[in-house]
Structures are given as C-alpha cells and as structure tokens.
Design a protein around this nucleic acid. Sequence first.
RNA 1: GCCGGUGUGGCGGAACAGGCAGACGCAAGGGACUUAAAAUCCCUCGCUGGCAACAGCGUACCGGUUCAAGUCCGGUCACCGGCACCA
Length: 801
Amino acid sequence: MIYNAKKTERKWQDIWEEGGVFHAKYNIDKQKFYALVEFPYPSGAGMHVGHIKAYAGLEVISRKRRMQGYNVLFPIGFDAFGLPTENYAIKTNLHPRIVTDNNIEKFSEQLKRIGFSFDWSRVIDTTDENYYKWTQWIFLKMFENGLVFKDKALVNYCPSCKVVLSNEDSQGGKCDICHNDVVQKSKDVWYLRITEYADKLLEGLEEVDFLPNIKLQQVNWIGKSTGAFVRFDIKGIDEKLQVYTTRPDTLFGATFMVIAPEHPIINKYSEKIENMAQLQEYRKECAKKTEFERTQLNKDKTGVKIEGLKAINPVNNEEIPIYISDYVMMGYGTGAIMAVPAHDERDYEFAKKFGIEIIEVIKGGDIEKEAYPGDGEMINSGFLNGLTNKNDSIDKVIEFLEEKNLGEKGVQYKMKDWAFNRQRYWGEPIPIIHCEKCGIVPVPYNELPLRLPEIKDFEPGKDGESPLARIESFVNCECPKCLGKAKRETDTMPQWAGSSWYFLRYIDPDNNSEFANEEKLKYWMPVDWYNGGMEHVTRHLIYSRFWYRFLYDIGQVPYKEPYAKRTAQGLILGPDGDKMSKSKGNVVDPNEVIDEYGADVLRSYVLFMGDYEKAAPWSESSVKGCKRLVDRVYNLYEILTDSKNYSKELESSFHKTIKKVTLDIEALKFNTAIAAIMTLLNEIYDKGSITKGEMKALLIILNPFIPHVTEELWEMCGFDGLLANAAWCSYDEEKCKDSEIEIVIQICGKIRERIMISANSSSEEAIEKAKSLEKIAEAIKGKTIVKEIYVSGKLVNIVVR
RNA sequence: GCCGGUGUGGCGGAACAGGCAGACGCAAGGGACUUAAAAUCCCUCGCUGGCAACAGCGUACCGGUUCAAGUCCGGUCACCGGCACCA
C-alpha cells in the first residue's frame, strides 16, 4: 500500500480543527499542564526548520500529557511588532499592518500544515489593539510605581536602524536587528528600572527548574558584585570624587585615580584644570571609537593626567593624581575608580606605562613582575597591617570610612536599566503626555488603547525622531490634568514589550476588562514548561521575568515566578555544518520537506536527528530514514491479526518500549524514544504479524511524533474515537524484565565468553556456571584466583595471577 | 582573558548511576525481486592480521585510580556558546 501523506495529513488536520480537539478548557477539577513555546516573529521569510524543532519538543510532550489525562494548554501567537516588518513595509511601500497580517496568515497556514496541537482558539497578536492595550496598561502601572523614568544619557544607538537600543539589544557591541556596530550617543531615553529588580531576579532563580547554564547566564548577565563606595576629597575644592570598588581592603595601595572621559567633573571644574585642551583632544578620540574598539581591540592603555586637580586618599591623606582614561566606563559604578596598581592588572599596566608609584599592600605576589590579585598578609596599610583575612580588612576599612562619612558598603550590577523607547512606527505607542505646566503626565487608563495613528510615511525622522512626531493630530493633545495644550510622547516601545507578558494573555485572551481573570491565572499559572532558544536567555527571559515579578508585587498575578521549568533546543545547522543563513544559501525550507515527504516525516526527523538540546546539521538523506519509518508503520496494516492481546514473543518488548518512550519523552530524549520504537518495529516485522492489541499500543506511543499516519491507521483498524483522545499506554514493571539474560564472562577484564543465565541467579551460581565453561576452565587452570566479581545481569569477572 | 559546554565509525548519534563501546538511522558494498529503474526485502559494515575460529588495537592527547574507565581524578590540545578593561 502506498501512503498518501498529503491527503491524509490534510484530512486529520481538518478533523482536529473542526472538532476543537486541542482546545484547552478551564476546568479546575483537572490537573493542568501549561506548555509554552516562544511565539514566532512572523517575518516575510516564512517559517524556518528551526521553528519546527523548537515547537516539536513540547508538541510531543503536550500530546502525551493530554493522553495521560492532563488538561493541557499549548497555545500559539505572534510577536508581530518590530523593525524587520517596518523596514520591509518601507521597502515595498505597504502598510506594516498589511505586511503583518499577510505574514501571520502565512505562518498560521504553515504551522497548521505540520499538525501541531496548538489551541488555535487562543491565538494572540501583539499588534492587535485589544492586546497592546494591556501592554500599555502594564507600562502605566510601572509608571505609577516609579519604575519608569526619563534620563539624558549616553546610550547604545544603531545608526543604521536609527534607534536607541537597550544593553540587551546590543550585546557584543552589535545591533541585535541589523548586526552593525552600535555607537554611544547622548539622548533622551525612557528607562524601565529593571535594576531595582536585580536581586529579585537573582533570588527567583533559586526556586525554578531552569537548565543550569540558563541560570548561570542570567546570573552573569545581572552581574551582581559587592564592595564599597569610597569618596576621595579633591584638594582645594569642596567636592568629593566617589568611586566603587570591590577591594576596599587595598585602599592604602591606591596611588592614583582614573575617571571616565565623559565624567562630569571635568566640565564642572574646567577652570581649575590646566590642560583642558589636551583632555578635550583625548575625549574626542575616545568618542570616535566604537564600543567594539574601545573594549576589544584596544587593550593597550591610554590616558591623560588631569593637571590642576589632586585627590586625597582618605586613609593616609596622601595626595594622588587623577587621570582620564577610556578603560574606565561611565556606565558602570560611578565612572571613577581608585587605582591600586599592585593588586589590579589593569591599574598595573596603566601605572607601568605612566610611571606611577606601585605600593604593595598584600604579601604573596611579586609586584616587580605583575599585579597580585590574591589574598595574603596586609602590609604598608596602617591600621590594617598584619591582618590576613580579606573580609576582616574590608570590614575594618568600611568601619573607618563610615565613621568619617567617606564611604560605605555598596552593591553594583552589570545589568543596566532597560532603555525602553524606540524612534520607530511599528510598536506600541508609549502612553505618556508632555505638558508644559504639569510635566510628564500618563495617559489615563480609560483612554487605552492609545492607538497607533494611520500614517503613510514610515521613514524614521531626521535626528533620530519617530515618524509619529510628524503627525500633528497625534502629537497635539489635551493634558489630562490641566486640560491645557500638551504633546504626546512619539516614541514607541521595543519589540520585547509585547512578549514580556504574552503567556498571561493566552490564559484569558478575550477578556475586555482585565488582562486576565484572577481565578484563571491561579489555575493555569505558572507555565509548567517553557522551551525556547538560548538567544533569549539574557533578553526576553530576563525581561518577562521582570514584568511578571512586578505584576506579582502589585498583586496582579498569583506566583513569584512565571516559568517553573525552562529548557532550550539546539540549533539546526545547514547541511554544510554552518549556521543556516540566507547569505550562505544553506537554509532548509520546511514547506519543501512537507511537499516531498509529509509533515510526519519532518516532525520525526527534527526530533530523531540528534540530541534535542544540541546543534546538529540537517541531512537530506537522513530524512529518508524517517520517511521509511512512516511507510513501515502504515504497512503494518497488512500484517494485522485479530488478537486483542500482546503476542507472547513481543509482550516484554512492548512493555519495555512503552516504558522507555514514556520516560524519554519527559527527558527530551526524543531521538532514543524514536530509536526504541524503530527497534520494536523491526521485531514486529521479523515476527511477521502484529495483533490488534499491539497495534493499538504502538499507535498510541507513536502518535505524539507522527500524529497523522497513526490517526489514519487508528481509524482503519476500527478503534474507538480519535487517537488524539485515547489514553496513554501503561506498562508493567515486572514484564519489562527478562527471565533469561545474557552475561559476559571476563578473565582479568577481558571478555572471553558469553552465556545465558536466569535473571535471578545468585552470585555463586553465576560464577560457578562461568567456571564450568570449557574455555574459562582452560584459562584459569593452574593460576591463582585473586578475585571473582559478579555484577548482576551484566558480567562475571575472574581475576587470576 | 574569564565562565560554561563538547570531543565516540565514512556521517547524525546510542551507552541507567564505573560493568558487553558503536543501539537506532544514514551512507557504502553485495545479493533477491524487476526487461530495467525506483520502491521493497535479505546479508556485510570501527581499524589491523587471518580462509576461518580467533587475536590485537580502538571513545581528541598524555598520565593516574580501579578487578573493570567513553564515563572518575590530574594535565594538554581542539572546537562551540556566553561575557568581556565590570573597578
């Protein structure tokens, strides 16, 4: 029989959809399982095989859990605001709304062609005003709670996309969207105070089940460090220069200070500074460098001494020079450091280059050769001399500083506040009004959604201004407070806004009075299992945990953490082993695979191709292996017999396979689960027939992987109802065990023989039987037996001398 | 530079928690069926030697622990990912 995948798959997709088979129903009497996959950005390029792999994992788990009786919520939606769509719209002269609608339609069709068991009744689209109304609502709540502020500061700016970027969006000094170099620019920026949540985000990690490397990456990204703030007097001026240091214990060794080129103190005291022109020259040079050059290429220290200003070391009143150098960043700590060349590598290098004194304050290294960052006995350190414990020294210094009000304990984070405005059209308008009288006024809640105005020209404005700034009917408005003339904020939110809470909306997508009903949130949250890409660990995954935690703090959601468990799939590489990319021409189109082999083949291949969590190259020929699997399954119908039970020969194999598949699926070991079923299939064909009972079990355990062909066979066999609604197979632990097992006999660890013995043989019996073998007896004859080992069910090892 | 991960046949990958290395699949070779091809089915398939039974070697490299190491320990190398002058 030839299996017609195209016709059959379509048939079942229609039946599932019409029957609402995968619709999740709010039912508090049933154990819920909320499986979440990262909703796609509907780009014009269509789906990528990577999407299929990312979704196929939880798809299999969801189908299995449904069969096991869970009330499964497995939703899908579209994260549709963002630059690529807007850029495409500009290029093709279409409205982003139309581009988005087209792309969503295309994606939906593709996703349905794969037969994913998503609940299509809950689809969300972040660009829908009924959705972004609530994105804006949460933003206003944050505003109300002091988590939104405006600042003019140096920010990451992408000259090519013409937008301000957050730290997360410019990792490695590259724009996340176009991958061009990011520059530092001084701009007015709206920030979300995510740093206020740094500790909560760290603590929350302790109670969730995330892959260890995901946790670690988040911990590193948040980058918490503890230390102290220390204020240095500046000689002759009533001004203190504050630094942050993790090593206050080395304060006696501070022989100079360094401030960032952008540090405000330079302009403030420009009159006192004797070499201002030289400093300006240096600052200009620094400004020219990209972040990349400044941090990566230019490890060679440069800098200029500030003539006319001297700092005073608070512990010994020594006058020390102040330098500007771009190895100190304005964006971290206070933009100024105390330099201890003897015990910090960078300061050492700088001191050597500029001929500055190096004072050893901790014994243990050789400061003639290099800086010594380790521990040891304190020397040359006044009241610290003789101490050997770093923490004791730190405590003592801080005590000293606090007494004189010259410093205190402090904490710093690498994570920065979230630069939240984008100077573009295709995003949620920021619901803020600027009033000359009242200042910054939030848009009243009852005016939400603040809709994006219809416009024709989406080109970003000059000087990095949003296209919305040109729409007078949008800009000019009434101040909600004083009713006077006012202007709207014209920037929009970043792409990450809508995705920061979408998992909450799935729970109650049509709710018009709140973002989601409290009781429903209590039932469905937290997400039981969230799977997605590693690239989101320090972006979306941080942002959404922040938003959710904020909603928890204001009593809007029931639990502290949104995701109980988080895993990540590995990439699918091109057939050449490189990352798939358009420019390399190694991208595999899922549509083509489906056209040629069918969705079941595609689904099973992306799971069978290797370890789910690791990257693996696509192989056209290996896909055929899965094609054979589907055909072989279909052709089982021809060797079907009437018996309702397991056959004697295969009973144990079935129990073992069911057990393995049941456990492997939950461990994301889809490749070995499928391999086990292939092995069973080989046994069935070797035997030459399959009973109805066996067929039933086989179809059930295969269904999550290849749902169409199994559903078809289920119907052909005349089994009740839909396979999708059938109950998962149970297995009998006792029947997974063999009564007779093969063990190997080793002499000194080398295999010499294999025998079958009864599974419950004692150690003595097994060893006796081994020794009675001709070959073994021969081998040990005349030798002393040093040791005899029996590993139950595995081997006998006889050690002789 | 720092942190994390990985390294197994021609290829993708298996191997519970130290106990038969290479499951399953692909590719390749041989055969059956066919006028022929495709599809399907059967056999072989880590390397070396041997007609064979079998023997020796083999999980990046060097060393160690153990009756026994892909797995544990110490060191080296390579590749991948993250961070990157974070004071």
